[in-house]
């Protein structure tokens, strides 16, 4: 038996219910014998017992008369709290609405050409899409996963269908630029569908990012306004 054992098990030695469970009766007997002969442990034991007594004697004040009823009454008249999940959903709803507005505006500006199939030439082409993701709060170290649509590859990484990486999303708009390669034969009148997933604090959200592309040739002919719109997704 030594001072270290006493220091580590001082609570168990003071707690009769711990004898036989945390420490054995034999250990307790040896410990008490040690305490009798060791001045350091004797003082430590006395201090611990005094501490426990002090804490047990501490009494917090009672609730004043009527306060309990008032608190319960107030709880019922307050609006329900807004949870994080709800805010998270609201952010994505806002993002969807924003996208729909942009997408509709682009369609309106190009309604005369929308019905004509516009196929990518046999060479394909490279471009850059900008994804704008709105989030309702800061989301540091969130995991963002993007799954690419068919006939689209990430420039320089041709064998990847999907990829994920940690991102620090800030409250409001977050723009992410992706260099992509579009394969030949795609109909540019159909929006590309990028599937995205955000994992933040073990909460996941799947959403779809639709992107309308135009070929570099058309891009040079288009106005500055439409060029800005086509690259903005969500």
């Amino acid at each position: 038996m030594n001072c270290e054992f006493i220091e580590q098990n001082i609570n168990e030695l003071c707690d009769q219910t711990a004898i036989g469970q945390e420490i054995s009766a034999e250990q307790q007997k040896q410990a008490l014998e040690h305490i009798e002969t060791c001045q350091h442990c004797k003082i430590a034991m006395a201090e611990h017992q005094e501490y426990l007594l002090t804490m047990r004697q501490f009494t917090a004040p009672n609730l004043e008369a009527g306060v309990s009823a008032k608190l319960l009454r107030n709880a019922k008249s307050q609006p329900a709290p807004q949870h994080h999940n709800f805010g998270f959903m609201k952010g994505f709803i806002a993002a969807s609405v924003f996208f729909v507005a942009l997408f509709s505006a682009w369609q309106f500006n190009h309604s005369d050409t929308a019905a004509i199939p516009q196929l990518v030439s046999s060479e394909g082409f490279s471009t850059e899409v900008t994804l704008v993701i709105y989030v309702p709060e800061d989301m540091p170290n969130a995991d963002l996963k993007i799954t690419l649509p068919d006939n689209v590859q990430l420039a320089g990484l041709n064998d990847l269908d999907s990829f994920s990486w940690p991102v620090d999303l800030k409250q409001g708009a977050n723009t992410l630029s992706l260099p992509i390669e579009v394969a030949a034969g795609m109909d540019l009148n159909k929006a590309l569908s990028f599937m995205a997933n955000i994992n933040y604090k073990n909460k996941q959200k799947d959403f779809e990012l639709k992107v309308n592309l135009i070929t570099p040739q058309v891009q040079t002919q288009s106005s500055v306004n439409s060029a800005t719109l086509h690259s903005t997704t969500v």
Binding site: A60, P61, L71
Partner: peptide, 29 residues
């Protein structure tokens, strides 16, 4: 309520803060 208030008081150290903490908890509940 009394048991909750006592612990809230030990957490916050002040009666008014303890009541606020309990109030927030009750709204959630």
């Amino acid at each position: 309520m009394d048991a909750l208030f006592k612990v809230a008081y030990q957490y916050t150290g002040q009666k008014s803060d303890a009541e606020d903490l309990i109030q927030d908890l009750l709204i959630d509940l």
